[in-house]
Amino acid sequence: MIGAEFESGESFVQRLDPRVKIVAVLLFSVVVAVSNRFEVLLLGLAVGLCIMLLARVPMRQLVRRLIPVNAFVLFLWIFLPFTLKGEPFFSIGPLVGSHEGLLYATRISIKSNAIMLVLIALVASTSILTLGHAMHELRVPQKIVHLFFFTYRYIHVIYREYLRSVNAMKVRGFRPRTNVHTYKTFAYLVGMLVVRSSDRAQRVHNAMLCRGFRGKLYSLRQFSMKTADVISLVVMLAIVVTMGVLEWIRMV
């Protein structure tokens, strides 16, 4: 579920203009994702760590959010060394791990963790609402912003409907097993959720029409850039450009 646990804290990152944060995270992520030089990647990781520390993300929260990404990275560590051709580096029985594969897996680990760190700092320091409004201010298409808001609002409702159905199944003695009955039941469950969500969407739309909705959502929030926001943006841009230049020098 979407957590909005510590959006109300008071760290420096939390007070920043959300538009600045979104732009900075976006540019940073793109540069880190396309870079290959270890210097650049390590710099990215260091910057990510600094931002995360500035945002004062609680440790437990951080670990909880890093686990899924690194579970995925772990699989890359298992497969990449053996599937990428290159100089042999080590061997386990008949399997030979390549030097290139190891380097590649290392790069991906650093990249994904650096990007995740800044993303966590962003999400943890900004409420979902503010993010949506900031996206709107940044001229992100209305439809995407609407989707974002509605997902936030209704994911809980749908989740509750899911729990209700699961409970209804449980109280009638349903226990998932590996058989057709189980698969059929889960298919019904998912099917009912889709049907109910679609009905709900229709009713919500009707309720909105009754209140004069004409395809436009208005925001009650106004953002203002302060000196701290401008400085942060400039610093972040400088870091991103430096990383870009370092990467580019190697390629020339």
Binding site: I128, L129, G132, F149, F150, Y152, R153, Y154, V157, R200, R203, V204, N206, A207, M208, R211, G212, F213, R214, K216, L217, Y218, L220
Partner: peptide, 20 residues
Amino acid sequence: DDQLFSPTVLEDVAFGPLNL
């Protein structure tokens, strides 16, 4: 739950007047 679609109460109550 059909009627209240905005994330916060204020935004939801202000939705109608803004549309007007």
